[in-house]
């Protein structure tokens, strides 16, 4: 019940933001939300003790799926794009998951990285898709409804928010139950889990699939916000950014990924505007400070505040 109330508040807040905020803030919120959804998937995966350095693969698949719909088949409907992207992400994850679910630790991380880099290579080689330059996409309608220019992005943000909140609630429900405990058990000791008769492979596979579908959705949302896709979405630095946001927020909550993504975007924007020559250094120092002083992620701040209150 508490979670439902929190979800309702979060959604109301996001809708208010989508309707009232200036355009640049709507854009930032969309990007932060998109990354938050990807990181949510990563957090699900991290519950089983696995970190993927290749979520860019699904982020990119989602972005390109959305863009190709508008570019190749002239389907410029945002709802179709978002759903198709999540489906595409889930589908590819269902396929690659068969292989990857056997891997653990750093090998899981590196194999997922290798796969995303192979997709990167394929995209760079595709002259028809604009190679590294990428191409533009335009979404004009939502479930067939058309909106005035400038209004459409606000509608997309509301739609994205609704989906993200529903996804977060579902993940919350899933992890709060038997499945979540099973995932933690796989992380802690896989062998015992199999001795108890459960299949760690199945747990990892399903969580990987969820992470893939969410990353695909996030990719399409980001593509809708930016209006452009390019292979950089699948590059390892993009994947690394997701991992960083996950660690920044901490893995113990499902709101944390979204808050962390918003803070990350804000941090990067401020750093590159006020310190254009040393923005990488500023970002690095902020990262170190957070890891040193908030080792369990920013969310531990919330925990402490809640306990003292």
């Amino acid at each position: 019940m508490k979670a439902l109330a929190a979800a309702a508040v979060a959604l109301a807040l996001l809708i208010a933001l989508a309707l009232l905020a200036p355009q640049w803030l709507v854009f930032m919120a969309m990007l932060a939300l998109a990354k938050g959804v990807v990181v949510l998937g990563l957090v699900v995966l991290m519950r089983t003790g696995l970190v993927s350095f290749g979520q860019g693969l699904y982020f990119g698949i989602g972005a390109y799926a959305a863009a190709l719909l508008s570019h190749q088949w002239h389907i410029a409907d945002a709802a179709v794009m978002l759903l198709a992207a999540a489906a595409a992400g889930g589908l590819i994850a269902a396929l690659l998951g068969l292989l990857l679910a056997r891997y653990r630790d750093i090998f899981f991380a590196m194999l997922s990285l290798a796969l995303s880099m192979i997709l990167y290579g394929l995209l760079v080689k595709s002259a028809a898709l604009g190679s590294t330059d990428g191409f533009n996409l335009h979404a004009r309608t939502f479930f067939g409804m058309a909106f005035a220019s400038g209004m459409e992005r606000r509608v997309f943000l509301i739609a994205g928010s609704a989906c993200a909140v529903v996804a977060a609630l579902m993940v919350h429900r899933l992890l709060g139950r038997h499945w979540g405990r099973l995932a933690s058990a796989v992380r802690d000791n896989e062998l015992r889990v199999s001795y108890l008769g459960a299949s760690p492979y199945r747990v990892v596979y399903v969580n990987y699939l969820i992470a893939g579908a969410l990353a695909g959705f996030g990719g399409a949302l980001a593509a809708l916000a930016v209006g452009h896709v390019d292979p950089e979405t699948t590059y390892w630095t993009t994947s690394g950014e997701f991992v960083f946001i996950a660690i920044l927020g901490g893995t113990q909550s499902i709101i944390a990924p979204f808050v962390a993504a918003a803070i990350f975007e804000a941090l990067r924007t401020i750093a590159s505007q006020y310190a254009p020559n040393v923005w990488q250094m500023s970002l690095g120092l902020a990262m170190l400070a957070i890891i040193m002083f908030q080792p369990a992620g920013l969310w531990s701040l919330a925990e402490r505040w809640r306990r003292s209150a």
Binding site: A3, V9, I254, V259, A262, I263, A266, I270, Q273, W305
Partner: peptide, 24 residues
């Protein structure tokens, strides 16, 4: 799951206030 809605709210508001100050 330990969710504190009002904290999430506060953090979100703080983050956006920070953003609002960006365009000079």
């Amino acid at each position: 799951m330990r969710i504190s809605p009002s904290f999430g709210l506060r953090t979100a508001v703080a983050a956006f206030v920070m953003l609002l100050t960006v365009p000079a």
